[in-house]
Design a binder for these strands. Sequence first.
DNA 1: CGATAGCTTGATTTCGTTCAAGAGAAGTGG
DNA 2: CCACTTCTCTTGAACGAAATCAAGCTATCG
Lengths: 352, 352
Amino acid sequence: MKNILIIDDHPEIRENIAEILQLAGYATSLAENGKKGLEIAMKEKPSLIICDIMMPELDGYGVLHLLRKNPETEYIPFIFLTAKTERIDFRKGMEMGADDFITKPFDDIELLNAIETRIKKFGILQDRYTPDESGANELMRDLCKGGMLNMDFSQQESEVISKKQFLYSENKRPKYLYYLKRGKIKIYKLNDDGKEYITHLATEGDFIGYLSLLDNKSYDDNAEVLEEAEVILISKDDFLTSVFNDLTIASKFIKLITQNVKDQEERLMNLAYSSLRKRIAKALVIIHAKLNVQKSGEHTIDISRDDIARYVGTATESLIRTLSDFKAEKLIEIKEGKIRILDVDKLNGLLN
Amino acid sequence: MKNILIIDDHPEIRENIAEILQLAGYATSLAENGKKGLEIAMKEKPSLIICDIMMPELDGYGVLHLLRKNPETEYIPFIFLTAKTERIDFRKGMEMGADDFITKPFDDIELLNAIETRIKKFGILQDRYTPDESGANELMRDLCKGGMLNMDFSQQESEVISKKQFLYSENKRPKYLYYLKRGKIKIYKLNDDGKEYITHLATEGDFIGYLSLLDNKSYDDNAEVLEEAEVILISKDDFLTSVFNDLTIASKFIKLITQNVKDQEERLMNLAYSSLRKRIAKALVIIHAKLNVQKSGEHTIDISRDDIARYVGTATESLIRTLSDFKAEKLIEIKEGKIRILDVDKLNGLLN
DNA sequence: CGATAGCTTGATTTCGTTCAAGAGAAGTGG
DNA sequence: CCACTTCTCTTGAACGAAATCAAGCTATCG
């Protein structure tokens, strides 16, 4: 059951709110001043905090400030309760990271609505996202489910794009965010000699093109369908307004894209100093994890040698030679051209 | 002169506001409904818009929505004017991207304050930031200047760190954001064999360590001083609250980090497919632009061969051989070991 | 003044690319 | 449906770019 902490120095108000919330099925904790409220918050980690601004000892701003400083209470939704309707108070509270404001007098519905919205939102956003590029995908999928991203999968029409067709190409202006319902798509850049370098591989459930949208520039890469794909188009505006108008979403995005940068630093170092053998081993594990297709019970990698090579950044022949080596060493198995990984740990732990 | 657009269907209020603003030295445009207001906004691109919510034809929400959809008017500060003090209205407005709310009746000071704050903030944030990693540095510097980041250069004590000392190292927990007042610092990762790959080079005016702070993980790289450095420490909390509690700052950050990702994709492709010659040429240009030291009127690169090699991702000997080639081709000049670039364009335009 | 770090060049080796060619699978069109 | 091209996968041989090993040279520092 959700526990809600109410901090207010007026006993009547405190009791009144507690009663409303209990009727609505919430558990409540009460505190008569900021200091006590803070203690309870630390100990009980409530699901939400309602707090008066004007209080003796430690005022509402102080409570909020201290909560936000502690990583354990940092993300607890916080609603200010205030008699004042003054702009300045309100501004200050928002800038400190309060999630909502309720002005006395308020009615029950208003209070409960505010609480419900916040708890729902928090529930979606507190989930841990895997710390790599796929995290952004998970986040967005959850946002859609929660109705936070302006998008409705069922209503939206989907488009089917066949193999070798382009979802988008270099120098075009991004107009949509793409959600890949089915199929596989490679995203690659071309160097001056026309060689491909695959920066991302997308499978069902992935979102494509958000970086260029956030960047608001023309595409600097190409998205080509590898395996017949069904794609949902989400309007650029819907996506951007969702991200840029909601602090919670924006914060999550910052963290996710930051992770992206870190991942790429890692990839850079590997490209710079790791042997081809090691790079190919890592790529196989990654591709396997990402595109593992369960066909007749077996996990195989179903992407052409050319594309694996372009993902690793090597020549196709070199890739194939290394694959042969791996096969001889019983790290992988090749059946009808399809690669099956036999020993993930050894592949990961390969020396240079 | 700053032009402010006032949209309100009550002539008295319109005139009243216009008068106040004119006295305060602003130019004003007036519109009596949402539709007209929108037209004027498109044509005149005002510095700020004040808009009533309740209006016939097209209400305030509609105006805001349409403005935010158009890239040309997207970032114009927008203040709602409303008689209602209702929470719901207010929420809706904020979520749509309004910058502030003023409730009638208001007094002159309040109005002018709100306007001034917004214009100042906008002025700082609308500047174009160079679309690479240094952009984040510029942004943060500006934020500090504008007092938006909780940090005061004069008050803060600075720390002097000498050559070969570490600012931070792998697996340590980040506690500060660092601002480099003077000196040079290299940030690098180590691969399994203990080889360095330099991911960033920082000079005076650069901020260091924000990625790990945003990420809230341990450092995965090392920062070593190349040339005696004076560093200002900014508390982790101050930095994080500034970023995560202000939607405008958060949005800017998203765009900047996105650019970071894009840059690294580019660097990845170069590492994968470009000849050493080309990669070294590019690195020289970048390092030159970043660390160009003007000593006795000449721009030279003042960083050891070892470090350049580790930035390119190659062996020191290979780097030196290429430098010799460049010297023979009169692309660069070497005086007392220091490299001076003679022909930037040719270095940039090198073929594979 | 010796020692150490940084820079440079030469010789050798290694890893990976490129060129070449064939075998099999998969489209394609008459 | 068959002959055709075309694509994908694979192996061999030769080449080449860059790493490594080695050694000398210069500048700097304690």
